[in-house]
Design a protein around this nucleic acid. Structure first.
Length: 343
DNA sequence: AACACGGGGCG
DNA sequence: CGCCCAGTGTT
């Protein structure tokens, strides 16, 4: 009886706090929300390699890699990259082709080019930018990444807004305003004592609990403050994937493979290496294997062809060991791996 | 505000 | 095989 009475008041207070939060005059609910989220994060956060450090360079590299890219895809590549380019000075001194080769398969290669160019700026300056506004001036660093790096590495109280945070905000408040309003909402929520952890806790919540599709509200630490609590709030869909077919030639000889370099002027993956295209096939050609490769909104079915007649293919003969060090496109790497030519 | 830019995982 | 994920820079 007494327990029920207490429970009633706990719920009642939660309701009142939620209302206050929604109306924006909420000075009591906000600290509790922050505390709940941070406690949850402390106990449930995934043990990711970039969370073991607050080193600006390492945080920076992780944020660039994680742009538009899943954690699972970054995981096997992050440590390798940092081993190869162990400091911002080392990265600055490297050739762009080496950086691209290490990035091969991660996609959005402009990220790697910008990271490299920015490393040269930082190395020349002799110091990392000291706040988000300064980070923002480097190529490849937009508003999100500047806030992420600065809050995590330097505890600057500046909020991040990415797809995860937007989804959390949408469900928490039941609506999403304009872009400017979203940034303000995120900033208003931010915990100023632990800004880096708070930012990560918002993104972690979006990734693990407040997921796209059906959120797992039973596990949500801020359910009490949430306006929607799992009621059908979702983000609009993307356009369908187009299907296309394409063929490449796989020509081998004496431990070498035929490769072509994309034009420097190409819009897509300039200067990177791939297999020669196979425009048309003859009866003597063999389909070694087919693989799927999906890029943005195009879903490719790729046939890998071995020429029956010794047709002249463009490109250069490249030793297998050498090919591995080239900036290969993800697809080229995938084909060479599947053919057993590289690892 | 719209578009271009890669690639992988899941069922 | 269909479906899902989400920052930066340019126009």
């Amino acid at each position: 009886m007494e327990n029920e009475f207490v429970l009633f008041w706990v719920k009642r207070c939660a309701q009142l706090q939620s209302v206050q939060l929604m109306r924006g005059n909420a000075t009591t609910a906000l600290p509790q929300l922050r505390q709940s989220l941070l406690s949850w994060y402390d106990q449930n956060r995934r043990d990711l390699p970039w969370r073991k450090t607050r080193d600006a360079y390492r945080v920076w590299v992780s944020e660039i890699m994680l742009q538009q890219t899943r954690v699972a895809a970054v995981l096997p590549r992050y440590e390798n990259f940092l081993e190869r380019f162990s400091s911002v000075e080392k990265l600055a001194k490297a050739r762009e082709a080496s950086v691209l080769a290490e990035w091969s398969g991660l996609g959005y290669y402009r990220r790697a080019r910008n990271l490299h160019a920015a490393a040269r700026v930082v190395a020349r300056a002799g110091a990392f930018p000291q706040n988000a506004e300064a980070w923002r001036e480097l190529p490849g660093i937009g508003r999100y990444t500047a806030a992420a790096v600065s809050s995590i590495a330097s505890n600057e109280p500046v909020a991040v807004l990415d797809g995860n945070v937007e989804r959390v905000l949408l469900r928490l408040h039941g609506k999403l305003g304009t872009s400017a309003q979203r940034w303000r909402a995120a900033q208003k929520l931010l915990d100023h004592t632990r800004p880096g952890d708070f930012n990560q806790s918002m993104m972690e919540l979006g990734a693990m609990v407040c997921v796209p599709g059906q959120p797992i509200c039973s596990q949500c630490p801020i359910q009490r403050f949430c306006q929607t609590r799992g009621r059908g709030i979702s983000i609009s869909r993307k356009p369908r994937q187009q299907k296309r077919e394409i063929a490449y030639c796989l020509a081998q000889s004496n431990g070498s493979v035929r490769l072509v370099r994309r034009p420097k002027s190409a819009t897509l993956m300039p200067s990177m290496w791939e297999l020669p295209h196979c425009a048309k096939t003859s009866d003597s050609d063999t389909v070694l294997f087919s693989i799927r490769h999906s890029i943005t909104n195009t879903d490719y079915t790729v046939r890998v062809i071995q020429r029956g007649s010794p047709l002249r293919t463009p490109g250069l003969w490249v030793k297998a060991a050498r090919a591995e060090q080239l900036p290969l496109t993800g697809l080229a790497r995938k084909i060479l791996c599947k053919a057993g030519i590289i690892l």
